[in-house]
Design a protein around this nucleic acid. Structure first.
Lengths: 120, 120
DNA sequence: GAAATTAGTTTCCTGCAGGAAATCAGGTTG
DNA sequence: CAACCTGATTTCCTGCAGGAAACTAATTTC
């Protein structure tokens, strides 16, 4: 009976795992992280610019994802009194704190690409 | 015609957005980030311990997600010559570099919780 | 030899995420 | 008034992600 026991689930670690799950629930959906990345890079952006810029996204999806982000206070929606009405989206102060997450993801993507390159 | 033009998609920003997408493809699936978080916290872990510890996951899912992570060289699988055979999983050196991402996600989750608390 | 444990695999089923296209509604242009 | 732009919303459809449960197979314990 000397099967190596791995560590039991410590309660303090649980919290971190819960925090991870909570975050991922907010960021769930195929497009949310890309949308936030876009907003971090460009600041205040019009709906149509995102629709054209984010490759492959459909209007319904963009609209829906933005609504969810707005509900979670990650994004603010502003209707502009322009000729054809335009709507601009930007990150809230709280939304901007997601830059740490997005940066980490983006940076790791570059790291990973280098890793694959070294191998081949 | 003084509609405020938002920034045009600059090619150098594109790269970052692609890196984000690449990372998220690797981490896609309901359980991968939680699994990696678990491995970061506990190091080398047996299959059954994860199955019991990660709340709600089914054997099929755990097996499948681990296989995908192994294919992407995030995780190593080791069969141990124990009495009932056991299999241990751990992060590769490359997999461990994901800690920057997981930490950011975990930390933000805590930040977000505080943010919600302040509001209420 | 029955029961249990480990690590899966297989099958079957379902919901919903997400895509395509049409529609709407307000405003401007020609 | 027809055409076009904006920012959606609605409908319809499909695939596949993911869950539950049963089964395999090797080894050990009782």
């Amino acid at each position: 009976m000397n099967v190596k026991k791995t560590a039991p689930p410590a309660p303090d670690c649980r919290e971190q795992l819960i925090a991870i799950r909570d975050t991922m629930v907010l960021l769930s959906g195929k497009w949310k992280i890309q949308i936030i990345g876009w907003l971090l890079l460009y600041g205040r952006v019009r709906f149509m610019d995102m629709l054209r810029g984010i490759e492959g996204i459909a209007a319904k999806m963009l609209s829906k994802e933005l609504q969810e982000l707005e509900q979670n206070q990650i994004v603010v929606r502003t209707v502009m009194p322009t000729k054809p009405i335009t709507v601009e989206y930007e990150l809230t102060e709280h939304g901007k704190t997601l830059s740490s997450v997005i940066d980490a993801i983006s940076t790791w993507g570059v790291t990973h690409r280098k890793f694959l390159f070294k191998k081949s």
